[in-house]
């Protein structure tokens, strides 16, 4: 079992005010309070830095740190996991109007995986585009619980999953240290790398859980 926060932003994102080390310190605060968070995925806005290496920090604090991205598309924000140089070559991460459907295909082609973020969010979530008649045949998983969304927006994401059969992940969407881990995804698999994260997503063996529900979880 692995509990990962699949959506977080460090100071590399323009609107976040948390360093990666502050996130890792806070996860240890959460652990002292009895909660379980095994790791985080940093999903910086509109960018991916191949050079930055968090392995030393990860080891120091005993937290898995993976890297992804949250990209702006013409169909809302999309979380991208297991980003490869090939994907970064084919997709302009800074293009806020990129075709989201093409991004999903490109990520899959390069061994990555795309999960539409906060699909119930007003004005920008996938639900809005589906209501306009857009189809997303390549989507199978969405972010069902987003820690930064309004309750009614998460309800819309929940309804979307019930209606379509989409599977759902959970992520804090943290922009502050103390918000990390407030929503996580519980995976049946043990995950330590981005490749394993993609495999675990494709297995369908996961569910979103609020931090409170991790309190009784066995330590992994």
């Amino acid at each position: 079992m692995t509990y990962l926060d699949l959506h977080s932003h460090s100071v590399a994102s323009d609107d976040s005010r948390a360093t990666v080390e502050q996130y890792l310190k806070w996860i240890n605060v959460l652990r002292k309070r009895g909660f379980t968070v095994d790791g985080i995925v940093l999903t910086e806005h509109r960018q991916y830095d191949f050079d930055v290496d968090y392995s030393q920090l990860a080891e120091q604090y005993g937290v898995i740190v993976l890297k992804g991205a949250e990209l702006d598309t013409c169909f809302g924000h999309m979380l991208v996991y297991n980003i490869t140089p090939g994907l970064a070559r084919d997709v302009d991460f800074g293009d806020v109007k990129m075709d989201g459907r093409e991004l999903i295909k490109a990520a899959r082609h390069h061994g990555g995986f795309v999960v539409p973020a906060h699909p119930g969010r007003f004005g920008i979530g996938l639900v809005e585009y589906m209501a306009l008649g857009e189809r997303f045949d390549d989507v199978s998983i969405v972010e069902r619980v987003n820690g930064g969304s309004k309750p009614e927006e998460n309800e819309r994401a929940d309804e979307l999953c019930q209606r379509t059969g989409y599977l759902g992940t959970g992520g804090s969407d943290a922009h502050l240290a103390s918000h990390i881990g407030r929503v996580v995804t519980e995976f049946k698999a043990n995950i330590a790398t981005s490749e394993q994260l993609v495999e675990a997503l494709m297995s369908g063996q996961f569910r979103p859980v609020p931090i409170a529900e991790t309190a009784a979880a066995p330590v992994s």
Partner: peptide
């Protein structure tokens, strides 16, 4: 000067 998208569009 940079662009992003959100609830209120671009």
């Amino acid at each position: 000067v940079y662009t992003k998208t959100g609830r209120s569009g671009t």
